[in-house]
């Protein structure tokens, strides 16, 4: 069912470019897109145009970080928007996730 939260995900060579809203409704789309990214040592998630993100989105980032780390790969968040930075700081995850 369509909802008011719109998320756009573009696949690029380095990883994914994400824009819009990452909330309870759209986070599963991000998780799915992240799971479909081709294997690489370094996967870049461009979150520079994310206007809003909540703990549902955070869950996908933490889960993705751990899944890639377990295979020796790195999930890099670069760049990150103000909304993403704020949430990572609030959740104390700036040093846990790889933010560039």
């Amino acid at each position: 069912m369509p909802t008011s939260s719109s998320l756009r995900i573009d696949t690029v060579d380095a990883g994914l470019v994400v824009s819009g809203v990452v909330d309870a409704h759209t986070a599963p789309q991000l998780a799915e897109a992240l799971a479909a990214v081709a294997d690489a040592e370094r996967i870049v998630l461009d979150l520079g145009a994310v206007d809003f993100i909540d703990s549902s989105g955070l869950r996908v980032l933490v889960d993705g970080h751990q899944r890639y780390a377990s295979t020796g790969a790195t999930l890099v968040l670069s760049p990150v928007s103000e909304a993403v930075t704020r949430l990572l700081e609030l959740a104390g995850l700036v040093d846990h996730l790889v933010v560039e």
Binding site: S55, R59, V62, D63, L90, A91, G92, H96
Partner: peptide, 19 residues
């Protein structure tokens, strides 16, 4: 309270308390 950084759940109320 915030869970450990590796936790994938349980941050909602901690975020509310923080903001």
């Amino acid at each position: 309270k915030l869970p450990p950084p590796t936790a994938t759940n349980g941050r909602g109320l901690a975020i509310i308390v923080a903001v």
